[in-house]
Design a protein around this nucleic acid. Sequence first.
DNA 1: CGCAGGCCCTGGTAGC
DNA 2: TGCTACCAGGGCCTGC
Length: 307
Amino acid sequence: MPELPEVETVRRGLARWITGRTIAAVEVLHPRAVRRHAAGGADFAAVLVGRTITDVHRRGKYLWFSLDSGDAIFGHLGMSGQLRLVTSSTPPAQHLRVRFTFADGGPQLHFVDQRTFGGLALSPGGADSPAEISHIARDPFDAAFDPDGFIAALRLRRTGIKRAILDQTLVSGVGNIYADEALWRARLHGERLCADLSRPLARSLLGHVTDVMREALQEGGTSFDTLYVNVNGESGYFDRSLAVYGRAGEPCRRCGAAIRRERFMNRSSYSCPRCQPRPRRRAVASRAAVARAAVARAAVARPAVAR
DNA sequence: CGCAGGCCCTGGTAGC
DNA sequence: TGCTACCAGGGCCTGC
C-alpha cells in the first residue's frame, strides 16, 4: 500500500524519467481515474497536450507534476495506483487507466489502478503548490515541517494517537502500516489518548514515525504483493523488516508475546499485547487531561491578544 | 469546529 | 466446481 516511502520512491523514479519531456497525447481509459477533474477526461487530455513537465513533487502521499504552463497534474495512488514507465512494445497492464505518450517517442507513462481509489487531475496554477492539496499537512521529511508545532497540535487532539497520526491534516504521509510500526517502536497502544501523552512521549513517537519511514524508503518501500511497485515495476523490500504489521499470532521481536490484531477504523491494527498495553480508559480522557487541553486550546485561540 | 463513521472499488481467497 | 462473504484501506463526505 503506498504510504510516504512508496510514494517518494515513485517520485524519484518519475523525476528522473519524465522531467523535461513534452506530452504528445493523453488517453483516459477509465473516468474514475480523473473524477477529481470536473471538466472530464476529454478536457484533461486536451489541456495537457504540448505541455512540458518541469519537475515532480510530493507532499505526504500526494504527487504533482509541475508544467511549463504554470499548472500542475496532481495525483494520489490510493490503495492500488501505480505510475509506470513502459515502452510502447510492452502489452498494457489489465488495469491501465491513463496513458501519457511523449513527443520524444520514448517510454510512455501509465497510470495503472486496480481498485480505482487513486486518481489524477489538473491543478490550474498549481505548479508550485496545488491549491487542491493545501489542506494536507507537511510531512516529516519536508523542510518546512515543524516538529514542535506538530507535537503541540497532537497533544491538543481529543482522540486516540493512531487516529491522530493517520490524520493527513495533522501530519501527512503516515498510513496504517507505518502507524502500527511506529507505535510498536514507541511501545504505545494506538488508543492511548493524545491529551495524555507527555511531550517527551509525543516527541519519541514522532521520532519513530520518521525513522521507520526513512528506513522503508532506503529499502524502496514495502510490498506485500504486486500492487505496489516503483516506476520500473519493481517491488520494495521493507516488508521483511516489519515488526507487527500483518504478523498476527507471530512472536513479538522484542518480548516474544503473540502479536494481536484488532479492528480499528474498519481496518486492522497490529500490536504487541505486552509491549503496548491497552490504556485503561480509551474512549474518555481523564478530567485533568481535558482541563489541560482546554487551557492549551484557549491559549492558542487568542495569540493576538497576548501580543 | 472536531471527531466518528460510512462509502467508494475490485481481485483474491476462504468457506460451504 | 461455483457460489457467496469477506478482506485490503486512503480520502472524502456527512452527520452529530
